[in-house]
C-alpha cells in the first residue's frame, strides 16, 4: 500500500485549480515510539555504548602505562607491529567511535520523530519598503552634491584609485629579487670536486668505468654555514659518471670531460627533483618524479619525458695535485626553467 502511494507522490501531484499540490506521505511511527519495551531496549543500547567508550578510555590509560615499547605482536597478514601502538589505537579509536555511534543511535531511535511543516516566504521586500529606500538614496545624492560638484567627485575617485597602491608596493617585502643568483652556483674555476657526505676529494683513477659518484664542491659546507640555508647545496649538487671515452657521442663543450669522466648537475631541468638514477650500460639518467630521461653520453640531452632542456654539464679537469676540479661554473642555469631564462 505504502509502495503505491510513494509512486503516486513521486510522479504526479494533485491538481487543485492552477496549483499543483504534493501532499506529504503519511507519517509512520517508529517501533520505539509505539512500543515502550523497544524504547527501553534502545535506551539500554545507547547507555551500554557510552559505558564501553568509557571503559576504552580507561583501557587506553592502562595500555599507555603498562605496555612496554619493546613488545611486538604478530598479527599474521597485517604483519608484526608494536603492541603499544595497536592497543592505544584500538582503545582510543573505539572510544571515539562508540560515542559517535551511540549519539546517532540515540538520535535515530529515541529523539523526537515528529514531522513539521515550515512554509517558504517570498524573498523580496514589500514594494513600499523598496520605494522608500530608493527615495532616501536619491535624496542623499542630491544633498551631497555628488553630481553637481565635479571637482570633489573627480578628486575622490582619484584618491580611491591610488589607495590600493601600498598593498602592491609592500609585495616587495616578500623577499629580495633573485637577481642573477639563478644563473650561478658556487662552482668556479679550480673548485675541487669531493664525494657527497664524506667530503673525500677524487682523483680520476679512483673512478672506474661504470662508476657513479654524488659530489659537491669542497667549500660547500663553509658557504652553506655562512648562508644559513641549503640553497647553495641545492644548486651545486652534481653527479660524476665514468664511461668508456669511445661511448661518448657528444658533449656540451669541447674538453669538458676528463678521460671519460663527466660531471652533470643533479637537479632535473623539469621541476627540480634531485636525480641520480643512472643506468650505467645505457648511460641514461632517469628522473623518478616525471620520468624525464637524459642521455649523459650525448650532451645530457632529453630522450624521454617532460623536461625541455638538456641536463647542464659542468666542465671538469684535473689540478696540479691530480684531483678532479671544475674548469668554471656551469655555463647555463641549473634546475628548472624560469621566465627570464635566455
Amino acid at each position: 500500500m505504502s509502495n503505491d502511494h510513494k509512486t503516486d507522490v513521486a510522479t504526479t501531484g494533485i491538481v487543485e485549480g492552477d496549483i499543483v499540490e504534493f501532499p506529504l506521505p503519511p507519517h509512520h511511527h517508529r517501533l520505539t515510539d509505539t512500543d515502550p519495551r523497544a524504547a527501553r531496549r534502545a535506551e539500554r543500547q545507547v547507555s551500554i555504548m557510552f559505558i564501553l567508550s568509557a571503559l576504552c578510555i580507561i583501557g587506553f590509560v592502562v595500555a599507555y602505562v603498562a605496555i612496554p615499547e619493546t613488545s611486538y605482536i604478530d598479527l599474521g597478514p597485517v604483519g608484526t607491529l608494536q603492541t603499544s601502538n595497536l592497543m592505544l589505537g584500538l582503545t582510543f579509536g573505539l572510544a571515539t567511535l562508540l560515542i559517535g555511534i551511540a549519539a546517532i543511535h540515540w538520535a535515530k531511535k529515541l529523539m523526537s520523530d515528529e514531522e513539521i511543516v515550515d512554509y517558504r516566504h517570498p524573498v523580496g521586500s514589500p514594494q513600499e519598503d523598496r520605494d522608500a529606500a530608493k527615495a532616501a538614496f536619491d535624496a542623499g545624492v542630491a544633498e551631497s552634491g555628488f553630481v553637481e560638484r565635479k571637482m570633489v567627485r573627480r578628486t575622490l575617485l582619484g584618491a580611491l584609485a591610488l589607495f590600493p597602491l601600498p598593498l602592491i608596493v609592500m609585495l616587495k617585502d616578500m623577499g629580495p629579487l633573485p637577481g642573477d643568483s639563478l644563473r650561478h652556483t658556487i662552482w668556479r674555476k679550480g673548485s675541487r670536486i669531493v664525494v657527497d657526505v664524506t667530503g673525500q676529494p677524487l682523483r680520476p683513477e679512483d673512478m672506474q668505468v661504470g662508476s657513479l659518484v654524488s659530489a659537491s664542491p669542497a667549500d660547500l659546507n663553509e658557504i652553506q654555514e655562512a648562508d644559513g640555508d641549503q640553497n647553495a647545496r641545492a644548486k651545486a649538487s652534481i653527479i660524476l659518471v665514468r664511461m668508456k671515452p669511445s661511448d661518448i657521442v657528444s658533449e656540451q663543450g669541447d674538453g669538458w670531460s676528463w678521460n671519460g669522466i663527466l660531471a652533470f648537475s643533479k637537479i632535473c631541468t623539469h621541476v627540480g627533483c634531485p636525480i641520480a638514477l643512472y643506468q650505467q650500460r645505457t648511460h641514461h639518467l632517469l628522473c623518478p618524479c616525471h620520468q624525464s630521461t637524459f642521455d649523459l653520453a650525448d650532451s645530457g640531452k632529453v630522450v624521454f619525458g617532460p623536461a625541455a632542456r638538456a641536463m647542464p654539464q659542468l666542465p671538469i679537469t684535473v689540478d696540479s695535485e691530480g684531483y678532479l676540479v671544475a674548469q668554471s661554473d656551469f655555463q647555463q642555469p641549473v634546475g628548472p626553467s624560469f621566465w627570464e631564462r635566455a
Partner: peptide, 18 residues
C-alpha cells in the same frame, strides 16, 4: 661490480668501511 645497469661503487669512491 655494478651488475647490469647498476653503477659501480668501487673501493676508491666508497671505501670498504663505508
Amino acid at each position: 661490480t655494478g651488475p647490469q645497469n647498476m653503477p659501480v661503487f668501487n673501493d676508491k669512491t666508497l671505501p670498504p668501511a663505508q
